[in-house]
Amino acid sequence: MNIVVCVKYVPDATADRHFEADNTVDRVGVDGLLSELDEYAVEQALQLKEKGDGTDEITVLTVGPEQASDAIRKALQMGADKGVHVVDDAIAGSDSLATSLVLAEAIKKIDHDFVVCGMASTDGAMSVVPAMLAERLGVPQVTFGSQIEMQGKEIRIRRDGDAATEVIGATAPFVLSVTDQSGEARYPSFKGIMAAKKKPVETWSLADLGVEAEKVGLSASWTQVEDTAARPPRSQGEIVTDEDGSGATALAGFLASKKFI
């Protein structure tokens, strides 16, 4: 079975976040990487492939600026087989709806049996692209899987919710998204780094996908970020001074007021 893994190139979450004048995330002037949540998707795809008969092929798909090829390269180093990078200036500023359109049109052009995504991006954190993709492709959505089992074309996942744990099944083709509980992502190896050099990566534009530029980008997006603000600096916590033996009571009162005890 052939698998498409959708991955996103995101700003390094450990670094400072900056925004452009139009309130979109600055993706050019900062260090970026393969979204850590998408590493879990690559990992699950690799595990499914390893359980297969050896004929499966994993294609890594990303939509993003030039540097987003770094995210593809990392996934190839982990063990994916080939990459597709959709890059087009008109895509900049796309919201999840527009992004899912580009992804869906690209997926249609790739020979595949099912699609794997991460549970969310570490920058936008919307969690909606997998569901949108499923709608656009007209296939079942099997999302937020923390445990994934597959037999032939049948998939069963466990979805851990606050109130209940659900077991969801589907038959390929489908769109699967996996959580950070699905299993630690592997490190690339040095051999993987060398092997990735020889793996094919195709670059497609909107024209290659037959998507009109007016349907994507900031102006075509249904949602718009109106304002961004830096997180306020951490304020000093409350200090309980014990002068007359009442400190413990004050401390307990504080914890109770915050519902910790």
Binding site: R73, Q77, Y187, P188, F190, I193, M194, K197
Partner: peptide, 15 residues
């Protein structure tokens, strides 16, 4: 080379 830079990146992630 790019591989050498990636190798350093992998090492940093691992450590």
């Amino acid at each position: 080379t790019q591989e050498a830079a990636d190798l350093i990146g992998l090492t940093r992630e691992l450590v």
